[in-house]
Design a protein around this nucleic acid. Sequence first.
DNA 1: CAGCATCCCAGACGATACTG
DNA 2: CAGTATCGTCTGGGATGCTG
Lengths: 117, 117
Amino acid sequence: MTRRDTYVCGIDAAIDVVGGKWKVLILWALDEGPLRFGELRRGIPGVTEKVLTTHLRELENDGIVSRDEAFEGAVRRVAYTLTPLGVSLNEALAPLGDWGRKHLLSEHHEPGEVSPR
Amino acid sequence: MTRRDTYVCGIDAAIDVVGGKWKVLILWALDEGPLRFGELRRGIPGVTEKVLTTHLRELENDGIVSRDEAFEGAVRRVAYTLTPLGVSLNEALAPLGDWGRKHLLSEHHEPGEVSPR
DNA sequence: CAGCATCCCAGACGATACTG
DNA sequence: CAGTATCGTCTGGGATGCTG
């Protein structure tokens, strides 16, 4: 998933940034706060480490997430955080998420059920 | 571009609907009003007929656009229109479009320049 | 005019194993 | 822990040509 270089309008550029198979899931997971690599992987069932890594690199290149590495003794600790740009992206994504939840996955929801995001 | 069948949340479902390379461009073109196949193709420089066709079929299956066929004498006239669902999708897409225009393609815009969408 | 039918390819995605 | 390194698959997308 390498970014294209010519865009006709803002939407297709944004879609390109966010279009990886797991990108929005990463963004959404990080919306709660910073997460480590392993936490992220466990939080998104189905991603392989390789794909998660490349997606994170791309999001980093696009300025959406920041990667902070640190060492505690011998163990590495890498935390991923949404940048302000990432936060604003998530906000811009919200209406689309509402739309999708409402029109795409609204089959059989019991009233008391926890609503997905 | 066949739709997936399991979604974690609304956003990734929506991204899946709108994730084709030319989908948002189609949606945006149709936002002004119904267009014929040829008009659509000319309005989106770069799409091949095959891809435009498949994208349109998928959008049709998802209930985003409607296809209306008619004959005027010997010539076919096929018009594509946004359904109400498609209109609502376009509205949900607007904030993301704003975000992309602002943060992704804001390099070197002269003050008097026409602003892309 | 509005498309199918074919053939083809890059690269996104996945599975598995290994490492600093 | 947080990744690389390989290898393999799959399919979205493109090029070209033909048709009702």
